[in-house]
Each structure stands twice: as C-alpha cells, then as structure tokens.
Design a protein around this nucleic acid. Structure first.
Lengths: 146, 146
DNA sequence: GCCACATACTTGACGATTCAACTTTTCCTC
DNA sequence: GAGGAAAAGTTGAATCGTCAAGTATGTGGC
C-alpha cells in the first residue's frame, strides 16, 4: 500500500509537472471546479472535494489566481464564504492538460487491470475511504446516468 | 484512488506527527533499516526500498543523524557508497513508535476489510506497482517463512 | 440583544520535497 | 591505461505543505 500511495501520486504528479508545471493537486482543484455548477465552489466545499485543508487550498488558489486560472469573490448570502471560480483561461488550461493526464492514469493503473480488478478496486477504495472520511463525496455519488 | 492516496498517508502521517514529531517517511526509513542485516543499508538501496529519490533520502537521513537515530559511514568495497545504520537510540525509538503506528494502520485499513478483501488488495496493489516500478522489492519477496 | 461558541477563511513561519548542479568513484571500451 | 559514460551521494535554492494564530461572520441560548 505504501508503494502504491507513494509511487502513484509521484508518477502522476511528475508527468503533469513535466508537461505543464502543474501539481496533481492543482490539477484536481481545477478539475473539481470545472465540473461544478457555474464552475464555482465555496472554498470549504472545494477543500473537502480535494481532501485538503482549507489552509492548503487557500495557498494554492492564491497561486492559481496569480496565473489567472481562478478568481475569488465574496458570497452574497453568507459573508464568511469565498467563492472560487474557474476563469476561461483556467478552463482552457485544464482542457489542454486533461488528455495527457487521462493517458497517464490509464498507463499507470487501468491498462494493467481487467474489469473485475477495476470493480474490486472500487469496492476496496470505498471501504477504506469509508473509515477515513465517511462524509466524502465519492461515497455518495449515486451516478445519475448509469 | 485519489481519496485513498491522499487520505491514507495524511492520516498515518498525522498520527505519527502528533505522537512523536516523526513523518511517515521518517518512520519508514527507520523501519527499513531495522529490518535490514546489521541494521544497515547503502543509501541507494534504502532509497529504493522507501520509494524515494536519493536527494530526499539524503536530507532526511541528515535530519535523523542529527537526532542521533541513524549514522552514516563510508563503505570499504565501494568508495562511492555511504552506509546508513540505525543506532541503538534509533532502534528504541522505532520500537516505541511501532505499536501505535500498527494500530493506526489497522484502524485506518484492515479493520474495515475481511480476508478476501485483504487478498484482493494485495493482488491489486502488486498489479499497480508492477506498472510503476517493476523492480520494487515488494514484488520479489517470496516470504521465506510462509 | 448580548455573549459564547462555531464556521469560513487568510496569513506567516517553519519544515519537507523537488530540482538542477556538482563531486567523487567505478565501469566500460578501445 | 586513458577517456568517457554511468552510478552514488550531497548540496542549495525554490517550491510546497502544515501548523498555529488571527480576523470576520454567523448561530443559539438566555
């Protein structure tokens, strides 16, 4: 497990880094925003979807904002929350990055597994996440179009 | 998978950090040394067993040396290699840490899985490592006393 | 309607990690 | 046996992540 949890992020991160000076975590932030309604999420929601602390996210979003990929704005209903929104540039950025990243993931993981393996992987992954973060969104997800 | 590879190391690392100001990676370095012959390994071998770069390992071993847990010495046969050796203090340190860490791992992973799950986990883990680092020691290990 | 507590977020400092450069020693080839 | 490539480490700078502290806003009890 140590091998997997060390090598896999390292591998994916390395590929993204070489490709575009972007971290796996950066990528994931952009990805979550790109899939969200209005390409926007409150910081705390984004933190929980990326499994990160608010602090870490705050630093990273600042960096991404400097690159012009994300912007932050206050929320009308609750003055405590900050909304992070993907900009057009941010959207094109992730659109460009996605194919190579998907390919990396396939390469590193899925090309070596058959259908049963993938099903097992999902089952086991969920069981483990269940213990670590029972409230994680991956455990909800009823998959609308299945 | 992202959830697992993020939450699991985070969880274990956090526990060790709180317990003893030690990283999961530090722990792993100590553990690998403690299981090695003479509690010693060449830096490069240690790096490969901990899935780290030589650079990362070098920094960490320097830190552990400062704590008095590890010492480094040149190797007679090959003047390029330096040997990392666990000191007595280092050994007691990991002896003290181990029970709590094992408990964390059980808690986070194995308590939620049955026997079949564990077998599947091993199979999948190996398949993935196979693609990422075919030379990894976890794939050899014929388990002498099984 | 005020006090305490919880939530949402930011910041700065510190420690960890990566990256690129460099040194030293060994191995290979001619 | 000289020259060049590869292997083993180390180092310093830059980036990343974590932690503790701080601010501002909301919420619930009395």
């Amino acid at each position: 497990m140590l091998a997997v949890t060390t090598l896999l992020p390292g591998n994916l991160d390395g590929a993204l880094q070489r490709e575009a000076k972007v971290t796996l975590f950066d990528y994931n932030v952009l990805a979550m925003l790109s899939e969200a309604e209005d390409r926007s999420l409150p910081m705390s929601e984004l933190a929980s979807r990326t499994y990160s602390s608010l602090s870490r996210l705050s630093h990273v979003v600042k960096k991404l904002e400097l690159r012009g990929w994300v912007k932050r704005s206050p929320c009308a209903e609750d003055a405590r929350v900050t909304m992070a929104t993907l900009t057009e540039e941010g959207y094109s950025a992730i659109e460009q990055l996605a194919p190579a990243h998907v390919e990396s993931v396939r390469d590193a993981v899925f090309d070596g597994l058959d259908h049963k393996d993938v099903a097992d992987l999902e089952r086991l992954g969920k069981k483990i996440v269940q213990r670590l973060e029972p409230s994680s969104w991956v455990l909800r997800e009823p998959r609308i179009n299945s």
